[in-house]
């Protein structure tokens, strides 16, 4: 399996007032692999995500996404262009679905840019041209594929807001995948899931990595997920990187244990 550098984070610094949420942070994430970002609450993980996906602009530093046809500098793009042109998808810590739209509609909206192109800014659709009908059918097929993947096919026509919590998390991942990302950023995808759902999540994420060949960036507190599926782990504390390595290395790193894993010992024990 070929693994090349996908995302490169160099000296990124994000400050709110006098507080350094992310401080001179550098690391890289590879293609076709799962990179986990862990660290105690307030370590700057979500802020880092917001910098990568363009919701915040870092004061210092560079964020590069390596496409096949050359590098894309993320910090120069607007947030919607990061999704559209740089092809970075994301989910949110507090789930952000279109609650009063159906599950299927959520996935169709995610394919907005493709459909807009196919429908000539909706004009072709307004006139009922066949070309739009075909594009919509393809979009529905893709949505069906992902609904099947996340086991929501039976609920396709329900309001997204009416789904149980775990299903909403999975739907959000499916929605992000419908944008055809090269890098998928997941903000605590296992939060609030029961052990069985958490296991299913592992299968889903490794499936995305292996079958679709994209990179995944993962913020997670659930150590069974982190240790179970990540290929590389980056540990943050107070906005700085204190360690990085394979899960096994991280588990045995004294600095990490001191800063973070100290409280999570018992979770490691049962493996």
């Amino acid at each position: 399996m070929m693994r090349s550098k996908l995302l490169e984070v160099e000296h990124v610094t994000m400050r709110f007032g006098g507080l350094f949420a992310v401080n001179d942070l550098s690391f890289s994430a590879a293609n076709r692999s799962i990179t986990a970002i862990i660290g105690p609450n307030g370590a700057g993980k979500t802020t880092l995500f917001n910098c990568i996906t363009g919701f915040y602009k870092p004061q210092i530093g560079r964020l590069t996404l390596h496409h096949d046809d050359g590098p894309v500098l993320l910090e120069r793009l607007d947030d919607y262009d990061i999704a559209k042109k740089a092809r970075v998808g994301r989910t949110f810590q507090n789930i952000r679905l279109f609650a009063r739209m159906s599950v299927l509609e959520n996935l169709i909206v995610a394919q907005h840019n493709t459909l807009m192109r196919a429908s000539a800014l909706s004009l072709a659709g307004l006139l009922g041209l066949a070309r739009y009908g075909k594009a919509e059918k393809l979009a529905v097929d893709k949505a069906r594929y992902w609904l099947n993947k996340v086991d929501l096919l039976d609920h396709a026509d329900a309001d997204a807001g009416s789904l149980p919590y775990g299903s909403q998390r999975r739907l959000e991942i499916a929605r992000a995948m419908c944008t055809d990302p090269l890098l998928l950023c997941l903000d605590e995808p296992a939060a609030g899931l029961n052990p069985r759902e958490s296991l299913e999540l592992n299968t889903l994420l490794t499936g995305i990595r292996d079958e679709h060949g994209i990179g995944l960036l993962l913020i997670e507190h659930d150590m069974s997920v982190v240790m179970g599926i990540s290929d590389w782990v980056v540990v943050l504390d107070y906005g700085r990187k204190i360690a990085e390595g394979t899960p096994v290395e991280i588990r045995n790193d004294p600095a990490v244990i001191r800063a973070y894993l100290g409280e999570a010992d018992d979770e490691d024990e049962d493996r």
């Binding site: 996906t53 919701f55 607007d78 947030d79 919607y80 262009d81 999704a83 559209k84 998808g89 994301r90 949110f92 952000r96 679905l97 279109f98 609650a99 009063r100 739209m101 909206v109 995610a110 907005h112 840019n113 929605r175 992000a176 944008t179």
Partner: peptide, 12 residues
Amino acid sequence: EDEIACRSLGLN
């Protein structure tokens, strides 16, 4: 429904 989610999906 959610402007931030829209932006994350590439909608301007």
